[in-house]
Design a protein around this nucleic acid. Sequence first.
RNA 1: GGUCCUUUAGCUCAGUUGGCUAGAGCGCAGCAUUCACAUUGCUGAGGUCGUAGGUUCGAGCCCUACAAGGACCACCA
Length: 857
Amino acid sequence: MKLSKTYQPNDYEPNIYALWESSGAFKPSGQGDPYSIVMPPPNANGNLHAGHALFVALQDILIRYYRMKGRDTIWIPGADHAGFETWVVFEQALTGQGKSRFDYSRDQLYQMTWDFVDENRGNMELQLRALGASCDWNHQIFTLDREVTDVVFTTFKKLWDDRLIYRGERIVNYCTYHDTSFADIEVEYKEEQGKLWYIDYPLVFPKAGQPKFITIATTRPETMLGDEAVAVNPDDPRYAKLVGQKLLLPLVEKEIPIIADSEVDFEFGTGALKITPAHDPTDFEIGQRHDLPITAVIGTDGLMKSPAPPEFINLTVEQAREQVVEQLDHQGLLRKIEDIKHQVPHCYKCGRVIQPLPKNQWFVSVKPLAERAKKAIRSGKIKFVPEQKGRELERYFDELRDWNISRQIAWGIPIPAFKRVEDETISGNTPEWIFDTRVDQTEIEVGGVKYIRDEDTFDTWFSSGQWPYIVTRGDLTRFYPSTVMETGVDILRPWVARMIMLGLYITDDVPFDEVYLHGLVNDEHNQKMSKSKGNVINPMGVVEQYGSDALRMGIIANRSAALSQAFSTSTVVAGRNFCNKLWNIARLTQLIIDDNPDQPQLEYDIASNWVACRLDQARRQIDKHLEEYRFAEAYDTLYHVVWNDVADWFLEAQKLHQNTSVLKQVLNVVLKLAHPFAPFVTEAIWQSLDTDDKSTTLLISQQWPEKLSYNSVKVKKFEQVKNLVSAVRNLTAELGGKKRVLYHNSEKLVEENCDVIKFLARLEDVVVASRSEEALRIPALAEEVWLAASASEIKAYRAALDKRLDDAKQQVALLEKRLKNPNYVKNAPKNLVEQSTAELAEQRATLKRLQVELKNQ
RNA sequence: GGUCCUUUAGCUCAGUUGGCUAGAGCGCAGCAUUCACAUUGCUGAGGUCGUAGGUUCGAGCCCUACAAGGACCACCA
C-alpha cells in the first residue's frame, strides 16, 4: 500500500503546486476557444482574508473546469498598489518610527512606500499558491508597472482631448486627518444625533409691515461665517416679498442677498436655507446657479481660516461651532435649539467627519460614459449573476455624478498634468495646464515655458477600472473581453461600473461578457468580520489545519451569489472528510487491483453499469450547474455521487466481485470530476497511480470526462437490488440490528443477486422458502420476500406496520381525490396524470399487502 | 425618504420555466465495526416553507399587504 491511511494535506500540497507550476499547466494552451478570467488584484501589501479564499475557490473552479473542457484558458493574476489603503498602513508605520509625511518630499514618500510594499510583496502571492490558484504567473502585473501607467496616461490624454476630463473647483469630500479628498462612493454616512440651531438673520432695510429678520435653521452654525445668501423656495408665500432684499450676516457683518431656489424644501426648518457655497454640496450648486462667490472658511487642515473674523481663525470646526453659538446667543440671535437625527459623512478609514471643501481637482464627466455602460447592460451585452445586480448598476449609472479622480496622497500613479508657472512674459494663449508623461520630474519646460507637475495621484479606481484591457495587451489580446468577471458585490459600483465605462470608452467593447458576484464571508455567527471585533478568520490557518481543498469546498458549500453568508468550520470539516473519502476510494481501488494483478475481469456487472450511469448523470449535472454558476450545487452533486454512490454502493459491491477495469475507470472519472473542487488531493492521488508515463501526466491537464456508456436494463436491476437491500437494512435496524435470514419465493432478482444482497444487507443467509410464520414481509416491495423475525418481534413491530398502513391509506385517499377532480385531469400535463394513476395503483397494492400482513399476525 | 435582498429542520443553507411525500451538510438519537476510511458504516427522528389574503386543478415558488433582519442609495440644510 503506497498511500497512508488518511490524507495528510500538508505533506502533499506544496509539492503538488510546484509540479503544476513548473509543468506550464497554468499557461493558455493556444487551442480551443479562449476562456479568460482577470483576477481582481489583491493588495500587494496585504495578507489574504476569507473573501480572497472565496474568490480563489470560485475562479479556480471555473478555470480548472474550462481548462479540462479543452478551452484556451488563462487566469491573469495581479497585485494592487491599493493607493489609499496602503498609504494608511504606511503612514501608521511611519508614525510608529516617530516620523511624519511632512518630513519628506512627495517623491521620497513614493519611493519609501514602494520599498515598504516590496518587503511584503511576496506574501500575497505565496498565499494564492497555497490556495491552489492555477493562475498564469508569467502574466502577473502590478498596478504600478510601467505598462499599466502607460495605458492610464494614454486614457487620461484621450479623455482630456475628448473634453471628458476637466479641472475645476468643486466641493470634494475631504478627510482633514488623511489630508486627501475622496470620491462620493468612498464616504460613509452614519446617522448621528445632532442639533438644529435656529438663527435670526436681520434684514438690512426692513420695510414697514415686514418682519425684521429671517430665521434659518442649520446643523453646522460655524459655516455661517462663509455664508453668501439665504435661499427660500420661490413658491413659498411666507418669504415671497422678501426675495431680492439683503440680510446682514451676523458676526461677519456682511450683506448677503435673499434668493429663491426651487431646491429649497418648505417643510424643513423654517423653509429658509442659509447658503454656504464653500462647505456644502447643495449650497455649492445653488451658489453656481446664482453666481455666488465661494467663500471657504475651513481649510484642508480642518481649522477655521480667513475670511472668517479674526477671533475664529485657527479654531477647530468644533471650537468654532461653540464660539459661534455662544456669540449668537449673546447677541440674542439664537432663537431655539432642536435635537435632530441626521446623516453625517465620515472617513471610512479613520472615522472622522468628512469636511466638504472647495478644491481644484481633476474630474471626469461621467454622463456620456455612463450612458453607454447602461446600454451595454440593458441590451444584455453583459450578463449579471445574480440578475438584479445588473439592474442596480443601471440605476447607479443614471444618478452617477462627475467623478473626482485626484487624490492628495503620494502613493499612486502621478497625474500626468503640469501647471504653467506664472510669468508676465508668457503669451495669453499659453494653456494653464498641459499633458505630459514626464512624471518623474517635478518641473519641465515646454517651448520656453516652465511647468510644474500636479502633486496629486490618481484615484486607484481610475487605473484599476482599466484593468481588463490593460492585462490582455500584447500576446493576450484574444482574451479580451474576458469571459467572466468574478468579484465581490461590495465593489460593484466602485470597480465593475468603472471597468464597464472605461472599457467601452477605450476599446469600444465590453470588458467582460458576464459578471458573477459573490457576497461577503461573515464570521461563524454571521457577523461581519473586522479587525476591531477580532473575529477575522485567517484562511492560511484553516489551510494549515484542514488543508487547502477542505477550505475551498467548505467555503463554497451552501453559498449563493451576492449574499453575505457565514463562514462555517463544519462545512470545512466536511470538506476535509470528503478529501479523505476520495483518498480511501483510491486506496481501496489500489488494494483490489494489487490483489488481482493479471486478471482484470471484464464481466460488466450490474453495479458497474449502475455506477457508470450515476457518474454520467452527475457529470451532466455538474456541467449544467457550473454553466449557471451554481457552485454550491455542483459541489453537492459531486459530493453525493462520490460518497453515496461510488463509495457506499459501488465499492461495497466490488468487495464481493472485483472488476478491475471498471474500478480503474471509475477512479479515473471520479478524480477528474472532483479535480476543480479538490485539486490537491485529486492530483496527489493521480500521481500515486501506476501510469506508463508519469512525468508528463498531470491530472490538471487531463480532459473532462466524456459520456459514459452503460446498459440501462442492468442499471435498473441494480436499482432494485439497492432498494431491497435498503428495505432489509431498515427493517433489520428497526427490529434490533442482529443478522437475520431472508426468505424468498424463488424471486428471480433475489436468486440472481443472492450473494450481493446477502453481503450488502448483512444477512445471515438467503434461503428459498414459502411464507413462514416467523417472518415479516419486506414493506413496499412487490416481490415475495420476507425477513426472519420471532413472534414477539413481529408483535412489537405491529405498531410500525399500523403506521405504515395509515400512511398508505392517506396516500390512496389523496391520489383518489386528485384523480376524481375533473379539472386536474383536464388541465394538468398528461404525464403527470399518468404518473398519478400509476402511483395510485402502486399505493393500492402496498395497502393490500400491508393489510394481508397484518391479518396474518 | 427611496431601492434592493433575506425570512424553509436545532444551526448554516439548497430548492433552476408552479406539479403533487420540501432536500443537504453539521448537530441529535439508536445500532454496527479486527474486513479502504472513526476524518467510518447502517438506520432514524426533526419542517403548518415569516404572517394574512389572492390567482390556480395544484403555491416554498406567482400577485398584494404586513412583519422582522440585512445591504445600498439620497442634497433635507
